[in-house]
């Protein structure tokens, strides 16, 4: 009765050895949790929902308290101020106008106001009311909802951003 015990022992050994081969499979099975921290319906097509990450959601919040009154055609209070202003400010999701402006430019115009950037003085400076991080968050939100969509500009050096 040798062979049955030999077979059994080798089977046990094989099973034990194969346990070691299972490590990385659990990593590939893993599905990351739901990414959307917040969401915003597309202004041009309310059926489409744009997912927002943490920074963009903070930007959404600040936008809807400070900026929506002039930079949107409808506001939570009802009518928008946009039509009262000459020149009319761009809609926040106006990709055609805003996509070509760099993040730095937007940061400056929001911080310093329109007159400091040779634009209309109707745009107030927010640099002392909002923190720089908050302004960055608003810009991130504006990029997220832009139609046509915003593309991050290509970099000349390595594909990873530089600090």
């Amino acid at each position: 009765m040798k062979w049955p015990s030999v077979i059994m022992i080798s089977a046990l050994v094989a099973v034990a050895a194969l346990q070691g081969c299972r490590q990385k499979s659990s990593a590939t099975d893993f599905k990351p949790p739901d990414k959307a921290y917040g969401s915003e319906p597309d202004w041009n097509n309310s059926q489409q929902i744009i997912s927002l990450n943490y920074q963009q959601t903070q930007g959404q919040r600040i936008f809807y308290s400070n900026c929506v009154w002039c930079h949107a055609s409808a506001t939570p209070a009802g009518p928008s101020n946009m039509s009262n202003l000459k020149p009319q400010p761009p809609l926040a999701n106006d990709g055609a106008t805003l996509n070509s402006l760099s993040n730095d430019y937007l940061q400056n115009i929001i911080t310093l106001g329109g007159s400091a950037m040779s634009k209309s003085a109707m745009m107030p400076p927010w640099g002392r009311t909002l923190k720089q991080d908050e302004i960055r968050a608003v810009i991130a939100f504006v990029r997220a909802i832009a139609q046509p969509p915003y593309q991050q500009p290509a970099r000349t050096s390595s594909q990873y951003s530089e600090k």
Binding site: W69, A77, N81, N84, S120, M122, P124
Partner: peptide, 16 residues
């Protein structure tokens, strides 16, 4: 400063 972009005086100005 163009305050009229947000404030009305009478009927002219902004709604904010």
């Amino acid at each position: 400063y163009q305050c009229q972009s947000c404030h009305t005086i009478g009927s002219a100005g902004g709604y904010v």
